[in-house]
Amino acid sequence: MIYGNILTPDGWRLGELHWQAGRITRIAGEPADPGANEHPRILPGFIDLHVHGGGGADAMEGGHALATVARTHARFGTTSLLATTMTAPDDEIRRVLGEIDAYMQAPPAGGARVLGVHLEGPYINPGKLGAQPAHARPGRIEEVEALLALAPIRLLTLAPELAGHGELIRHLTERGVRVQLGHTLGSYEEGVAALEHGACGFTHLFNAMTGLHHRKPGMVGAALAHADYAELIPDLLHVHPGAIRAALRCIPRLYAVTDSTAAAGMPEGDYRLGEQTVTKCLGGVRLADGTLAGSTLTMDQALRNLVSIGLPLEEASRRLSRYPADFLGLNEQGRLATECLADLVVMDTELNLQAVYVAGQLIEGETDVTDAR
């Protein structure tokens, strides 16, 4: 049991949250304003759908690195994540997918839950690589089917303008894979057409895609005009706060991701991102030419950043938990309600992390935070 200000789907309750066998069994309490007391804030665990690495480990290193990535992000409140791949030769992607699947069959305790794979590339535009290595190519249904047989690919990023990708989007949608548009030079019209084919989101909105111009709305314009979901990196470096606020007005279920690299949770220095070397410096991660290459963001900092630009805590929380859960169709995560998984983040009045629970197991925090009232 834990006591504090509990963020439920119906609003804040000051009271007790009970769980057993990893699931919430009861929430007892009265409506409350968390700003009017000093009790902990108890939020749903964060769900990060774009994670390349952390703690010095890179997802492309394979299964042995995933435990480090999962433990690192759990320290910052992430209770579930998608292991995100980089554009690479086919044999390298196949190897990594096989190792991710093996890891998921017997995950070690003490880290965030790995929900599956976010395949970011290789089906992206070679003219909009960003920090992706130069192995981009159009996708074929037969090739993608072979990859789907290796690991649970839950989310796939592609450039919709590449030949055959309209058909590929329709096929993936029928197979239950969520498709996001990203690393693209596509037009507004191509973005709208992709949404009509079944694409349902945008990868790191504003970054690595055609921007908004009033006579050429671009892929950003397609997102702002038509998207229900999109991911965004709220490190306040990738996207200006004003652009974040514009997106919040336009995209109902805009959700936060870290796009974190091996440098997350680590000191400044050089790290791996797929086959490339990146440098953590000046508050971010960059290639040698200065190109932003993922981030060092953690989800607890993403929450604080969203609150700092004016979002109420309950809305910021939804964009780190409820909306990414809904995007993947996860009805038992991303919310604190009876029968849901007891994935909890406990924060103090300054939104500093006090404890993290995954399925009711204390992952981070020196003691079991059970505020004695």
Score class of each variant (00 low, 15 high):
residue 26 R to N: 07
residue 30 E to D: 11
residue 31 P to K: 01
residue 31 P to R: 05
residue 32 A to P: 04
residue 35 G to H: 10
residue 57 A to I: 05
residue 68 T to I: 08
residue 83 A to E: 04
residue 84 T to S: 06
residue 84 T to C: 03
residue 92 E to K: 14
residue 93 I to L: 13
residue 98 G to R: 07
residue 100 I to A: 01
residue 102 A to P: 08
residue 107 P to D: 05
residue 119 L to A: 10
residue 124 I to C: 11
residue 125 N to T: 13
residue 126 P to T: 08
residue 129 L to M: 14
residue 134 A to D: 15
residue 136 A to Q: 06
residue 143 E to K: 08
residue 149 A to G: 11
residue 161 E to A: 11
residue 162 L to P: 07
residue 166 G to Q: 04
residue 171 H to K: 14
residue 174 E to D: 15
residue 179 V to Q: 00
residue 179 V to F: 00
residue 204 H to D: 02
residue 211 G to N: 11
residue 216 K to V: 15
residue 217 P to C: 05
residue 217 P to Q: 03
residue 235 D to E: 07
residue 237 L to K: 14
residue 238 H to K: 10
residue 238 H to Q: 13
residue 242 G to K: 12
residue 250 C to F: 01
residue 253 R to S: 11
residue 254 L to P: 07
residue 260 S to E: 02
residue 274 G to Q: 00
residue 276 Q to V: 00
residue 280 K to S: 15
residue 281 C to W: 14
residue 281 C to H: 14
residue 297 L to R: 09
residue 306 L to R: 03
residue 313 L to M: 15
residue 321 S to K: 09
residue 324 P to W: 02
residue 326 D to N: 10
residue 326 D to R: 09
residue 339 E to Q: 13
residue 352 N to G: 11
residue 358 V to E: 00
residue 364 E to T: 14
residue 365 G to C: 09
residue 365 G to P: 09
residue 369 V to R: 03
residue 371 D to G: 15
